[in-house]
Amino acid sequence: MIRVEGTAARMPGPADTEAAAACRKAEHDREFAAFVEDSYHTVEQILLARCRDREVVQDALNDAYLHGRVQWPKIRSYAKPVGWLIITARNKIRKEQQRRQREAAVAPEDLPPAPNGGVADSWEAEELLRSWLHQLPSRHAEVFEMERAGFTNHEIARVLGLAESSIRSYKLAAKRRLRELAQEAGYDSRRRPGGSRGSR
């Protein structure tokens, strides 16, 4: 930003428009930085519902945010820029997965085992939840995570490219399966408080 001001200072002629452009850019930069900090965690969470590989998710995020920055002048005016960002990052992940043929190679039964033992803090809760989400069909898992991140049915349908009428069913199916998985792992309040492997 200092560089921008310096350049502007040296230019006398069309300084007004240049200065205005620099000013706008600086504003966009600030906005964008805030947008990244605000959305990164949510988007990562949603992408991880579909893709187990954290590295792939992070690479896709870097790329998507870079494009986001290029297009920021347009995107900033969207009702929810984060929707566009999720779509972009998802497409990048899909391309990467097609390239690696990953889905065919990894059997569901080869999934890393769910962390067992008690759930002591919110981080462990998150990890446990994710291990269960990976056992769901990816559509169900993504819908579920987006709902948790506070998106409406309309928004979820548009971001994930699904019919609006499907979202409710996917949510219910996800919730039902997650409850089963939780019960299998011993988290079931109906059996006895705390569950058989309950919290410490």
């Binding site: 964008f32 965690h41 870097n62 870079l66 919110s122 988290y187 309040s189 919290s199």
Partner: peptide, 30 residues
Amino acid sequence: MDLDDILKLAETRPPSSLELARARRVARAV
């Protein structure tokens, strides 16, 4: 403890300082 408790517990998690730092790093790199 059941699924709802776990969901609630996971919900309460704000991004850790480490994760915030990563977000900022991404923002800076971009």
